[in-house]
Amino acid sequence: MIPALDGLRIVRLERLALHEDHDEARLERLRARIAAEGVQLNPVIVSPCDGRLLVLDGAHRFRALEGLGCRLILVQVVRLPRRVEGWQHLLRGLDLAALRGRRELSLSEDSAPGALAEVLFAGEGPLRVLPRDGGLRGRVRALRALQALYPAGSPVRRVEPEGRVAPGEGEALVRYASFSPAELLEVVAAGEVLPAGITRFRIPERVLGVRYPLEGLMDGDPEERTASLRELVRERWEENRVRYYREPVILFE
């Protein structure tokens, strides 16, 4: 079988450690969908970290299942990537005056080491966003202050880190800086979480479409559940119901 399938596990929710927050509107949509479908469609992507499992992708799935009363969760265990990229956010209605007025933030038009993000408005040069306060908590507060300026209800389009997008009239493009894995581990160790949608991990051989029954995640022995999961995977493999794609995938949520 495909080696990535060996990384599928059923584990207890409390073993997972989050490094980023969630978006409440997105969480509500996902929770309703999972409840209606009765399955966890895709595994949460995790990496071993000091006896716990660091969530690389799937904070909303974690929160949704937690809210539905599940004590177990389907995960795919992978190696911690060497690099953590930053998403770009394209949105409308970000106010430049309000951005300049946030006390947690300092803005610079020049290249600035330690910048947390760059903000581009239509026809303008990039503004580098820096934290006014030092240390990890100062950086997290600054990131939260930046996202607090996103207009309520305005859709935020995520753009790949290397994507070349120019903001149109009334739009802003926020380019988030990358983090090192060590910095993320520092965030978790400090009991902090980053705002939602900042970190981007590239996971080779990501497993999708498992559709594990929700009833099997309510409670039980994780090892027994993992054994039944592997039997399910084996059956689907033998029935030729597993496909492997090397090319990029476009996914509707």
Rank of each mutant, 00 (worst) to 15 (best):
G86D: 04
L251F: 13
S108P: 02
I198H: 05
S154C: 13
V193Y: 01
A32E: 15
L251G: 00
Y176E: 09
R243H: 14
P43F: 12
F179N: 00
R52I: 06
L27R: 00
G163E: 07
V140Q: 02
V46W: 09
G114V: 01
Y176D: 08
A32F: 03
P81F: 03
E231S: 14
L13W: 05
P181M: 09
H22E: 04
E205K: 07
A115D: 00
G86F: 05
L16I: 09
F252I: 12
L130Q: 04
E66I: 05
L56F: 09
Y244V: 15
E215M: 00
L143K: 07
G123W: 06
V140P: 01
E247C: 08
A177D: 05
R79V: 11
V233H: 04
C70Q: 05
P131Y: 02
E186G: 14
L72P: 00
R139D: 03
Y244S: 12
N42H: 15
I45G: 01
E109Y: 06
G67L: 05
G7C: 12
A227G: 09
E235D: 10
I198K: 03
L232W: 09
G135R: 10
V233P: 03
V187D: 04
L116G: 01
E109T: 14
R230I: 10
Y212H: 09
L30Q: 01
V55C: 06
A182V: 08
R246F: 07
P151S: 11
P48K: 12
E253Q: 12
R200S: 07
G138Y: 04
R141Q: 10
A182R: 15
P181F: 07
A36G: 09
L90K: 13
L105I: 01
V44G: 08
V242C: 10
P213K: 09
L130E: 03
R137D: 14
R100W: 11
E24C: 01
R83P: 05
Y245A: 14
L53A: 08
L232Q: 09
C70S: 15
V140G: 04
V11C: 08
I45Y: 08
L116T: 04
E235N: 07
D219S: 15
A97Y: 03
R63D: 02
R137E: 15
G209S: 10
V165P: 04
G135P: 03
L74M: 12
A17M: 04
G135K: 08
R82L: 13
L72V: 08
A190W: 10
P155C: 13
G38T: 07
L120I: 10
V11Q: 06
F179Y: 15
V77M: 13
G7H: 07
R225G: 02
I203Q: 00
L116A: 04
R71V: 04
I203V: 15
E85D: 14
L18P: 02
D95P: 06
R79T: 14
P81C: 10
R33W: 13
A196L: 00
V39R: 06
A145E: 00
L80T: 13
D23Q: 07
I10C: 05
V84H: 00
L208P: 07
F252Y: 13
A227D: 11
G138I: 00
G123R: 06
V140R: 03
E223I: 06
V77K: 12
P131C: 01
A17Y: 03
H22C: 01
R158D: 07
G209W: 11
N240Q: 14
G125N: 08
Q76S: 12
E192M: 12
E239N: 11
Q88P: 02
A32S: 14
E24T: 06
L8K: 11
G138P: 01
L90D: 11
